[in-house]
């Protein structure tokens, strides 16, 4: 039993160690700064610049968060503070259901609806002259924006379910105190509850962010996979997970190729572990507060 627990507890370290050992060959031959900041990805010529992929990952995640964070938090506040028990009990399982849908299905859905939608709006929005939303190239719809929208929907359940729990964990006295001073319900949420719930909301957002950062298949299917530094949300992109998924397994003939891809995996993992760790520590604090207070 203890062996099983020890194995499970050290799994994270095993994975990190293995990835590190395998990405060491490329770290030994090239400075990390070159790998991270160079934007030419020509494995056959020994050039492994991950910059466009890192940027693509950040962009697509940022778009997803811009859509998901306000929608999820507003929904969560409604569910936690406004909705009747019966509505809450009906909607929360639906949110869980959303979390259970496989990424590939989201990908199919994205290809069927979001991609044509983006292709349709790209010329219209592109002509408005909004920065970072120009349509310089012809957009097929397979783009950062499509990836961002699909990701946003995948992130909803993560942020909503945690935020609802965080709000429910705020002691009832806080609400009573605020309401008895004549505050409206929204004022109570904004001034009293938010103050208590903010770290928890931050944790929810961080967990959603990490989920989005590592999501592979759904994004891969709608984001276009062109290795460029995207300049508009209508441009295709090539995030790190997609890069690994598309190229790993067939890179054995080119020296250092697998090492470069595993370095990409390691970077991804370390970033996500850092964020998740921070979020978890916040949530553990909140849990303690609830059990103690």
């Amino acid at each position: 039993m203890l062996v099983a627990a020890a194995f499970a507890g050290s799994l994270a370290f095993i994975v990190i160690l293995a990835l590190y050992l395998r990405s060491k060959p490329i770290l030994d031959t090239k400075p990390l700064s070159e790998l991270l900041l160079n934007s030419s990805w020509l494995p056959s010529q020994g050039s492994f610049g991950l910059y466009p992929a890192i940027l693509s990952t950040l962009y697509v995640t940022a778009i997803a968060m811009m859509i998901a964070v306000p929608l999820s938090i507003l929904s969560a506040i409604y569910l936690a503070e406004y909705a009747k028990e019966s509505l809450r009990r009906r909607v929360l399982p639906l949110v869980d259901l959303l979390a259970g849908i496989p990424p590939v299905v989201y990908g199919v859905w994205g290809v069927l609806t979001i991609v044509p939608f983006v292709a349709y709006i790209a010329p219209v929005v592109g002509s408005l002259g909004i920065p970072a939303a120009g349509a310089g190239r012809y957009s097929t719809g397979f783009s950062l924006l499509a990836g961002g929208i699909v990701l946003a929907i995948m992130v909803f359940p993560v942020i909503i379910s945690i935020t609802v729990q965080v709000f429910r964990s705020v002691p009832f006295e806080v609400r009573e105190a605020s309401l008895s001073m004549g505050a409206t319900q929204w004022q109570t949420v904004k001034h009293a509850l938010m103050r208590v719930a903010l770290p928890g909301i931050a944790a929810a957002v961080i967990l959603g962010f990490s989920r989005a950062l590592g999501e592979t298949m759904a994004v891969l299917m709608v984001v276009g996979n062109v290795f460029i530094v995207p300049s508009s949300v209508f441009d295709p992109a090539y995030p790190l997970p997609a890069l690994i998924a598309n190229n790993y397994g067939e890179m054995m003939s080119i020296p250092l190729y697998d090492s470069a891809l595993l370095l990409a995996a390691l970077i991804l993992l370390l970033i996500i572990l850092m964020f998740t760790l921070a979020a978890r520590l916040i949530l553990i604090r909140i849990e303690r507060r609830v059990t103690v207070g």
Binding site: A12, L262, T276
Partner: peptide
């Protein structure tokens, strides 16, 4: 151990895939 499991929960499956293949 619990914390490390919670953190592990967030590991993207592509990383597991790459790790497993390695």
């Amino acid at each position: 151990i619990r914390l490390s499991l919670d953190v592990l929960w967030g590991t993207p499956s592509i990383v597991y895939g790459a790790f497993g293949f390695t």
